[in-house]
């Protein structure tokens, strides 16, 4: 069993209106050093397999097919053995 943690973010070349709004808010609150705010999604799921390679392969498919939209989004993930996940 693996716990997968997937991060989906808007691609760099695509304008992220939410990120922009948050960046503006941070600046107006005095956090001028903040820049490049991007807002994404975090998904957590459990994979019922013990084979890491299979898990990675399947998870990539899930991301490509459903969890992210490759036209505007990038994704990254990490796999943790279920017992180690907190």
């Amino acid at each position: 069993m693996f716990v997968a943690r997937v991060q989906v973010t808007i691609k760099e070349e695509v304008l992220d209106p939410q990120g922009k709004a948050v960046e503006g808010a941070l600046h107006s609150l005095g956090f001028e050093e903040a820049s490049g705010v991007r807002i994404g999604k975090f998904l957590e799921l459990t994979l019922n397999t013990d084979d890491r390679a299979v898990a990675e392969e399947r998870l990539s498919q899930m991301c490509e097919k459903l969890l992210a939209n490759p036209v505007i989004e990038d994704y990254e993930f990490e796999l943790v053995e279920a017992g180690e996940a907190r």
């Binding site: 808007i10 992220d16 209106p17 939410q18 709004a21 505007i72």
Partner: peptide, 17 residues
Amino acid sequence: LLEAGLLPGAMRRNQSL
């Protein structure tokens, strides 16, 4: 239709949010 790839491109949240 965009998600299904029947048309090109994608939708983002409105600029005004």
